[in-house]
């Protein structure tokens, strides 16, 4: 019984970490059919910025997080301006942007490696201690991550549903031409969506590194898993991807406790392939015609 609780507790934490990244990726894909393969490097950048501002500059934690989020959001907008914008609407956009962001991610990762070195660093933004709950040990850090992630998702959901800019983002995702005819400047929406995704990547990077440690290539695996979750949910489905993230987190935790950490990624992939053979558009996906 205790094992079950342990699995649920760590599974939800994992899922919460994934959800932050997944939602950012889904938002970008939904709005502009772009798979941002530099998301993992953005996560690393966010994690290292937090380390740098806290340990290097001695800023208070809240300010450090803010700087990390701001820097990653700016880099996200820069990805739009320098890489995505020149090829928007051109033939093969989805393939080209995929490859270009792989390259950009590699550049960022190498830059981080040069700036901070290859040795793992501890993330200073980790909270020690834990709560005992009926024989189950719950680290405060995990609870914090779960709460933070859920609060972020709620805020993002409200923003997308209620605010004028959120409406514009949804409109762009659902029908680009129609959004333009309503007066939405879709270039601005694209830049904004990539900036939001960048900011979320920073938070995701901080949480991931607080559970393990900082490494220049720390974002690679979580990014691929976040993409897998996006695929399971149906690319671009924002609310669905949160549900899928929590589910995949639980699945991974269960595999880790029962079979072993080594096989969790492989089984995850197997699960995705099975899901896609069953539902090629993803669980929450709908077949859509050609998206222009």
């Amino acid at each position: 019984m205790d094992v079950l609780f342990q699995i649920i507790a760590s599974g939800l934490t994992l899922g919460a970490v994934y959800a932050i990244s997944t939602v950012g990726l889904a938002l970008v894909f939904g709005a502009m059919s772009m798979l941002n393969m530099s998301h993992g490097a953005l996560m690393a950048l966010g994690g290292y910025m937090a380390w740098f501002t806290l340990t290097g500059l001695g800023l208070p934690p809240a300010l450090g997080v803010l700087v990390a989020v701001g820097v990653c959001a700016a880099v996200g907008a820069l990805i739009y301006l320098l890489i995505a914008r020149p090829m928007l609407g051109a033939e093969g956009f989805e393939t080209r942007i995929f490859i270009a962001t792989i390259g950009f991610g590699a550049v960022m990762e190498s830059a981080i490696l040069m700036a901070f070195g290859p040795q793992p660093k501890p993330q200073p933004l980790a909270v020690q201690g834990g709560i005992g709950l009926g024989g189950v040990h719950l680290p405060v850090q995990n609870l914090l991550i779960l709460g933070l992630s859920m609060a972020l998702m709620l805020a993002l959901g409200l923003f997308l549903q209620k605010s004028r800019i959120g409406m514009a983002i949804r409109a762009t995702a659902q029908n680009r031409d129609a959004a333009r005819l309503m007066g939405v400047r879709i270039g601005g929406v694209y830049a904004l969506v990539l900036a939001i995704s960048g900011g979320l990547a920073a938070i995701s990077g901080i949480t991931v590194s607080s559970l393990s440690s900082l490494l220049p290539n720390m974002g690679g695996d979580p990014m691929l898993k976040a993409f897998i979750i996006c695929v399971v949910a149906g690319l671009g489905r924002v609310p669905g991807s949160v549900v899928a993230a929590l589910f995949i987190g639980l699945f991974e935790a269960a595999v880790q406790y029962t079979i072993g950490v080594r096989f969790s990624f492989a089984l995850l992939l197997l699960l995705v392939i099975v899901v896609l053979i069953w539902k090629p558009q993803g669980v929450f996906g709908r077949h859509q015609g050609v998206r222009l």
């Binding site: 020149p86 080209r96 270009a100 490696l113 040069m114």
Partner: peptide, 20 residues
């Protein structure tokens, strides 16, 4: 040295963006 990886990445990005 270390700039080599950055150079490789930049070549890739530059080519995809400017020379599809």
């Amino acid at each position: 040295g270390d700039f080599r990886d950055i150079g490789m990445g930049l070549i890739l990005v530059g080519c995809v963006v400017l020379m599809p």
